[in-house]
């Protein structure tokens, strides 16, 4: 009895100041302690870089572009990077949807009544983790495709116009989608609804709109995967092209606004709603 009582009393009751970095550390512990996290990341990287190998090899069989300009594009095939979009969006959403599903969110909220800070801490951890994964994926893709192309004396240096931009845009695709997924997860809370909505907005929506008419092109260009498509193009659109093409600065703005708006809405809503 005495020992038990002392066990309860050893911690001083004086509370240290509430620090945001403690919340980040806490969310990092949660992320790290799930077995699925390293597996998901490893498999995703394998698939993304693997798809680059396949795409670059295929390019050898049928020479595509009029010149070298199209070659860096091989590094970022849609099959691989749309998968990255799906996985990042889903994992981002799950970090919060799983808390709502299990009820853990209540325990979390009692521990940290400042709900907005919890969402921001989750966003910080997700952004950091998926920027790392995205950078590994896009650098890996670039190096692997260059290694294959160099074998055919068709390599393109990183200093080539647009090549570095493509690498950065592909690296940031993962955190952008993960943050959008997190925001949707907070807003919708329901697993299936969140998955369907994030897949729909991130992947299914852009092909619905064409670049043939102004309004349709405007909607398309405001979507994340279309912005990524523009940013990895190392060639400039032909002046005589019939379609409307997104601008590079506009595409960067789309990249910034989607996660910003998603997280801002999430923080606003989470403060007002019953847990």
């Amino acid at each position: 009895m005495t020992t038990l009582t002392s066990a309860l009393r050893t911690t001083p009751v004086t509370a240290p100041p509430a620090r945001f970095r403690d919340l980040i550390a806490s969310e990092w512990i949660k992320m790290r302690s799930l077995r699925s996290t390293p597996w998901t990341i490893a498999l995703t990287l394998l698939f993304v870089i693997g798809s680059t190998v396949v795409a670059t090899q295929a390019d050898k069989a049928a020479p595509s572009g009029p010149d070298d300009l199209f070659r860096p594009h091989d590094a970022y095939p849609p099959a691989g990077y749309w998968t990255l979009i799906l996985v990042a969006g889903t994992v981002g959403a799950l970090t919060v949807v799983s808390e709502y599903n299990s009820g853990l969110i209540r325990t979390t909220t009692v521990a940290v009544p400042a709900r907005g800070s919890v969402v921001l801490a989750k966003a910080a951890v997700i952004a950091a983790l998926w920027t790392a994964v995205g950078t590994a994926a896009s650098t890996g893709s670039f190096l692997v495709s260059q290694a294959i192309l160099a074998g055919r004396l068709a390599g393109v240096p990183i200093t080539h116009p647009g090549v570095f931009r493509a690498l950065v845009a592909s690296a940031l695709l993962a955190p952008v989608c993960a943050l959008v997924g997190l925001g949707l997860g907070v807003l919708l809370r329901h697993a299936a609804a969140t998955m369907v909505t994030s897949v729909f907005t991130l992947v299914m929506l852009p092909p619905m709109f064409s670049e043939g008419s102004r309004w349709s092109a405007d909607i398309k260009h405001a979507l994340v995967s279309a912005a990524w498509n523009r940013l990895i193009q190392t060639w400039e659109p032909e002046p005589g092209s019939l379609g409307y093409t997104a601008t590079v600065p506009g595409s960067w703005i789309v990249y910034t606004l989607w996660p910003l708006i998603a997280i801002a809405l999430a923080v606003l809503v989470v403060r007002r709603r019953d847990v």
């Binding site: 806490s26 949660k30 302690s33 077995r35 009820g103 940290v112």
Partner: peptide, 26 residues
Amino acid sequence: ALLEAGQVHGGRSAAAHLSALARSNG
């Protein structure tokens, strides 16, 4: 507070669950 006992993530260990909560409160 103990709310409902099921309100934990089944994939985490007890130590990790408590560590994350402890860390959030310093």
